[in-house]
Design a protein around this nucleic acid. Structure first.
Lengths: 390, 390
DNA sequence: TGTTAAATCAATCAGGTTGATTTAATTTGT
DNA sequence: ACAAATTAAATCAACCTGATTGATTTAACA
């Protein structure tokens, strides 16, 4: 968004189906998504708009196929409420996750349902493989939609690790094979390839957007999102808005300074999954297991337990940093880890917090992310929806 | 601000002189303040508004006495530009700084000039002394304005340390004498006493608002503000807006976790002025000197040098935390310290940064605050102006 | 006298508002 | 048990604010 967006312009043209929404339309869509469904009267109340305006806006959203009239709620005195909910087939987003060990492409509907996914694994990513995969996967995915629905695809979101060419060795890639990514402009290349608007975010930021839109059960309006993947990452939401930062890197808690004993390093070397992989390999187990087994890790519990407490120490540190600087509602921890491990990680982090000096800080709420392992893929697809509707 | 303010309402009534401004009026006032003066054509350009709208809004601001037509700029081809600047006597704010060793009351005009100040020192603050001072000082200050101008006072801003009853010993106050502040509601008490709208902020947040409005020469739109006072504090600005946080405590870097060697503590015990006071006392000098001598510290340079490098280590740490979490434009360091010390502190912090592992982070810009020692007082007075006009 | 850029005029429009009215249910009274 | 009263949601109609665009005026330099 450029400078102009800070100002309060009426929309430039009569908004058609393809136009981006006015601020109030977006606010209302966001509210409906958060509460699943809302009658006009409550919308007016919650937004502070007049009942009349709520009527007019909902009428337009309904005509545009974005919301749908639901069954009236009788039982109370007065005319029954007619709730409106999102029309799941009202718009679609496609997401492309560029990972260090796999590509993912996901078709997401307006309600956040995954309509289809494709996945491709490899030892390390190359640019040409990405473009081939993108083209092929796109053509497969859109088969899930009829011609009308295909026209409702709002764009392609891309989730990509920050500086994918860095940390090559830690990620298990040959040292110089990733250099080509430095020169690659994914936005231009993919817009050209697929003729769709393309939105780029770093992987953790995309995951954060998914949690904000489809998770966040406590409804924090400001929170730090922590994603424990091969490398630690995160995102930041303030007042229900994803914070971008100067270079699009806000929330990157991996770069926080962290002192382990006396050695000065970064938090990424304290709380990342590659450390567990190493630990398992060193103990004579198969470290790859943690990437391949999404829902349960049946491996050396001793290594996992060690890793959990080290990781938790790091996350507790990050939590205190964030609370101190930002005075947040809470912190959400998620990752590419099984549910029981995630649960244990939150518990370990909470107890690690108790050893910290938290004077002057508000009570900290730490909770589990709902979206989980697929957060990056779903988040990438959500970028296009977010850009248009929320 | 409550929930409603997030929505996009037209102003509720025909705005009179007393009403708060519409978003575009505020934006334009902010622009004019930042650039000192602007002709209508440039305002239209910078805001993205049409020339016509710029004309209409400026006409209203001029009628309300907030801006003033300046001398036309000839010399270029075409009709000469007529720049508009803030009318310094168009509005006033009063600020009350509640400190641990003194009270300050300041009368500030729309341009940020201090029209008058009163100061009162003590060993430790009491509630009744505050109220007495507030009443008396207010009556003295308004003598500087004629009757018409007195009606342009837009409110009282109060800058107060967070939990003033804490840290009593470190601040040199008797242990239990500050307990009464826990029960004290400054907003209600002062609104009642002076019949003015009252705005409360913690001291560092108020200082930050002063730097944002009247300093910030690099025009960072997002920055961390660090204020080195008796106790370390700070404030945060994102997209030209002071960030508040859930409990109004965002930017409180004093509570960042800091490990000095192996002992875990908070940054406030690494980078605060009371540490220099102690250091001086321990070395047989007069520690109070640093609070009493605003423009030059003529005392043990060895102690100062030691304190500078320790403090800088802490500030470098805070800088990395902030950059990592928020990906800022820069960091501004200020404090209740002489200019040469401030300068040295920035230099020490910059060189301390070089010892840190900054991989993955954008280039960091660290600069000196312009407003300085009076930032808290000026900032407090600015709160009322900010609330109405920016 | 022509050219240029700033500023204003005039007409219009988008997106809100309020107050009166309609609608469809429950509750009450006889 | 049924009609009337009550209640709350939703809509209608008129209007207002704050923006827009396109044509015109103004005041300087060339």
């Amino acid at each position: 968004m450029n400078k102009e967006s800070a100002f309060h312009l009426p929309s430039q043209k009569a908004p058609t189906l393809l136009d981006s929404r006015s601020a109030n339309e977006r606010d209302i869509l966001t509210l409906i998504r958060q509460r699943s469904s809302l009658p006009k009267a409550e919308i007016a109340q919650l937004t502070g708009l007049s009942a009349q305006s709520a009527t007019v806006i909902i009428k337009k959203l309904e005509a545009d196929g974005l919301v749908r009239r639901l069954k009236p709620i009788k039982g109370g005195v007065g005319q029954p409420k007619v709730p409106f909910g999102l029309n799941e087939s009202g718009a679609f987003g496609i997401g492309l996750k560029v990972g260090r060990r796999s590509f993912d492409m996901t078709l997401l509907d307006l309600k956040g349902n995954v309509r289809a996914t494709l996945h491709e694994k490899f030892a390390y990513p190359t640019v040409s493989n990405l473009l081939t995969f993108a083209k092929r996967a796109f053509n497969v995915l859109i088969k899930n939609l009829d011609a009308d629905q295909q026209r409702l695809i709002r764009g392609l979101g891309v989730a990509m690790p920050f500086e994918i060419w860095s940390w090559a060795e830690e990620a298990g890639a040959p040292k110089n094979e990733l250099e080509e990514w430095r020169e690659f402009n994914p936005q231009a290349a993919l817009e050209d390839l697929l003729s769709l608007p393309v939105f780029i975010k770093n992987d953790a930021g995309a995951a954060c957007s998914a949690e904000m839109s489809f998770g966040n059960p406590q409804n924090y309006s400001s929170f730090l999102y922590i994603f424990v993947g091969t490398f630690l990452g995160g995102g930041l939401v303030l007042n229900n808005q994803l914070v971008n930062g100067k270079t699009g890197n806000a929330g990157a808690i991996g770069s926080l300074p962290f002192y382990n004993g006396s050695t000065q390093s970064q938090l990424i070397t304290q709380s990342s999954l590659y450390l567990l992989e190493r630990k398992l390999n060193d103990a004579g187990h198969n470290g790859q297991h943690i990437y391949e087994s999404p829902s349960h890790w049946s491996c050396d519990t001793r290594s996992i337990e060690d890793w959990l407490s080290e990781t938790a120490r790091g996350l507790a540190f990050a939590t205190q940093c964030a609370m101190s600087l930002l005075d947040l509602d809470g912190v959400i921890i998620d990752g590419a880890i099984p549910d029981d491990v995630k649960n244990a990680l939150v518990a370990h982090t909470q107890s690690a917090m108790e050893t910290l000096d938290m004077r002057g800080l508000a009570q900290v709420h730490i909770s589990e992310g709902l979206v989980g392992r697929k957060a990056q893929s779903i988040g990438s697809a959500n970028l296009a929806l977010q850009a248009n509707y929320y």
